[in-house]
């Protein structure tokens, strides 16, 4: 056994030193390399997972927004039709009212015009009658003057 140990140069101090070397290397690499790299890999994986979740949520939100848009558009369309219908009805009613009012005013004006015409006509007659009477008086005076002078 001693010969074997001597031939291979087995030395417990060297074995211990190599174990210490390994321990030092394992501790150093864990601190310098393994932990930072594994942390980075986890962070990246979390980010990717979060990104996928966000993308799914965004897609869902987009679909919801699209549905809401369609709903709003449909409501707006219906409301617009109702408003247009109401406006049309109102306009027709208003138009009829205006036309009726105009017709009333026109009739009133016609009546006023007819009354004024009658008034003018009566006044003309009265003036004519006065003129005729005046003319007749003058003619009678003239005749009387001529008879008196002759």
């Amino acid at each position: 056994m001693d010969q074997l140990i001597s031939a291979f140069g087995i030395d417990w101090q060297l074995i211990l030193l190599q174990i210490l070397n390994f321990g030092l290397l394992a501790a150093g690499l864990t601190y310098l390399l393994y932990k930072p790299v594994l942390r980075l890999l986890r962070e990246r994986q979390e980010r990717i997972e979060q990104g996928i979740k966000d993308a799914a949520a965004a897609e869902k939100m987009k679909q919801n927004a699209e549905a809401e848009k369609q709903s709003i558009l449909a409501t707006a369309h219906t409301e617009a039709e109702a408003v247009a219908a109401r406006a049309k009805t109102h306009a027709e009613e208003r138009g009829q009212a205006i036309v009726g009012e105009a017709q009333g005013k026109a009739e009133q004006l016609l009546q006023q015009a007819a009354a004024a015409g009658e008034e003018i006509k009566a006044r003309s007659r009265r003036e004519s009658e006065a003129e005729i009477a005046k003319t007749a008086i003058l003619a009678a005076e003239k005749i009387l003057q001529e008879r008196a002078s002759s």
């Binding site: 087995i10 060297l14 074995i15 211990l16 190599q18 390994f22």
Partner: peptide, 9 residues
């Protein structure tokens, strides 16, 4: 090539 190293590991 050193048996001490391989025994250590």
């Amino acid at each position: 090539t050193d048996i001490n190293m391989t025994i250590g590991l």
